[in-house]
């Protein structure tokens, strides 16, 4: 079971909109960290994913294990939030 979801985004990121659309369609709530508004959190996104890209979706499960999905990748995102 999913405990919470955080998406790292920017204002111009089309793939971020797709992740939000997918989670929205599944009825899953999520928090957004907009790196254009909070550039100080870039290092956090990079540390979590090892990638300098958005979207980064961090899925935390009830047992506090975490799964990080880089980009808009349904093959990884779908099982992560299942």
């Amino acid at each position: 079971m999913v405990k919470n979801i955080t998406i790292f985004t920017t204002n111009t990121c089309a793939y971020c909109a797709m992740v939000k659309k997918y989670l929205g369609a599944k009825g899953l709530p999520y928090d957004v960290v907009n790196l254009d508004e909070q550039p100080e959190r870039q290092a956090e996104a990079l540390a979590l994913s090892g990638a300098m890209t958005v979207p980064i979706t961090v899925v935390t499960k009830q047992d506090d294990t975490r799964q990080v999905v880089i980009g808009y990748n349904l093959a990884k995102l779908a099982p992560a939030v299942a």
Binding site: L35, G50, T53
Partner: peptide, 17 residues
């Protein structure tokens, strides 16, 4: 790739402030 080499400016540009 995605750690310094990119193909989408609107996606990844913000990392290069």
């Amino acid at each position: 790739y995605a750690r310094g080499v990119h193909y989408c400016a609107t996606c990844d540009g913000a990392f290069y402030r």
